[in-house]
């Protein structure tokens, strides 16, 4: 703009105090994450505390707890980050993998592959089949919602058709389960309830790779997601390929959600609420929000799982029950106090 460089323009500390406060908050958050993760390593059906590492049973317990921690981190991070992206892209506080039918589609794909496949195909093919099914579902939802509009469906029609397709998917799952063999039924229901029982190491590795890829992709997109918060048109005016960002974001978020579903079943709540809580504390800037929400979602699920396996030991409560029962009231209080920062509508 050809203005003189005045002193103030060289000074980039113009966010001053609020920036320090935000930094402090992040440090506290990391400390809390480490503390909670350590705590969850102490909890388990065999008792509270560190087992004797010298004994074979003790080291087995520790390694089991650690692999459940990894499962929880992966699943929680994937669900939460995908929720962040869906909410940012659709500019709607209700958007999440379940509402858009993505989880339902992934669940249907996973059910088919659990019932139909066997052996190696199930363990390695599960995330892939779930992803393909989720993408097909998303395309179906998008296609239905686009009917009658000139190419770009409204958020409301997207969510409405997402809810419809999602219920169709769960009906089909119910039907498949009711006609399956006893063993198949057992497998599917066990998986559907949601659990962080470690899967085979091959599937864990594949899922980890997919989730890391998805998170990385989203993080790369995150500055552009900020621009899309002002709508497709504004993002276009500011020099983005708005539609490309939209499609890439939807694909990455779907990949994350589908992998999480194939890994740990249908665990609700995390993808919807954790992004809101994180936004309430750290603001809506997706560059920060994506990694923080991933970390927060993962930690939250790990803690919930530790509680789920400890409270009624030796009975294990499905982790999805704990996420909503324990997390619900807790997050409600946070959101009520910081509603404004979470989402001004």
């Amino acid at each position: 703009m050809g203005m003189n460089d005045s002193g103030i323009c060289r000074d980039n500390s113009f966010t001053g105090r609020s920036r320090i406060r935000a930094g402090l908050r992040i440090v506290l958050f990391f400390a809390a994450v480490l503390l909670l993760l350590a705590l969850s390593m102490l909890l388990g059906p065999s008792g509270i505390g560190i087992p004797d590492l010298q004994s074979p049973s003790g080291s087995a317990i520790v390694s089991l707890r650690f692999s459940r921690l990894l499962m929880g981190m992966m699943t929680g991070a994937a669900l939460s980050a995908s929720g962040v992206v869906f909410q940012a892209l659709l500019r709607n506080p209700l958007a999440e993998p379940y509402v858009l039918g993505v989880s339902g589609g992934a669940g249907l794909g996973a059910t088919l592959s659990i019932l139909g496949g066997s052996g190696l195909f199930v363990t390695l093919g599960l995330p892939v089949v779930a992803f393909i099914a989720a993408v097909l579902t998303l395309m179906l939802v998008y296609g239905i919602a686009s009917q009658g509009s000139s190419g770009h469906p409204s958020v409301y029609s997207l969510i409405l058709s997402g809810v419809i397709v999602s219920s169709i998917c769960s009906s089909v799952i119910m039907f498949l389960v009711s006609t399956a063999s006893v063993e198949g039924m057992h497998n599917v229901i066990w998986w559907m309830l949601g659990s962080l029982q470690p899967v085979s190491s091959g599937q864990q590795l594949l899922s980890a790779a997919l989730i890391l890829g998805g998170l990385g992709g989203i993080w790369l997109l995150s500055p552009r997601l900020n621009a899309l918060a002002l709508g497709r048109e504004m993002a276009h005016y500011q020099g983005l390929h708005a539609d490309r960002v939209l499609v890439a974001g939807l694909l990455f978020a779907t990949l994350l959600a589908a992998t999480a579903v194939s890994l740990s079943g249908m665990i609700g709540f995390v993808g919807l609420i954790v992004p809101h809580v994180m936004r309430a504390f750290f603001g809506p800037d997706n560059r920060k929000l994506v990694p923080l929400a991933a970390l927060g979602g993962g930690t939250f699920l790990v803690v919930c799982d530790a509680l789920a396996r400890t409270i009624l030991a030796p009975i294990e409560i499905p982790v999805g029950v704990v996420t909503a029962l324990a997390g619900g009231p807790f997050f409600l209080i946070i959101l009520q106090r910081r509603m404004k920062q979470a989402w001004i509508a």
Binding site: F14, T15, A88, R91, N92, P93, P223, R224, N226, A227, A229, L230, M234, A235, Q238, G239, L240, R279, G283, P284, D285, K340, Q341, A342, W343, I344, A345
Partner: peptide
């Protein structure tokens, strides 16, 4: 802006490209 973006964050969008 549906979320709680600050004025600075909004203006920064102008440099997005």
């Amino acid at each position: 802006s549906p979320m709680a973006f600050t004025v600075l964050q909004i203006v920064m969008n102008g440099r997005i490209s």
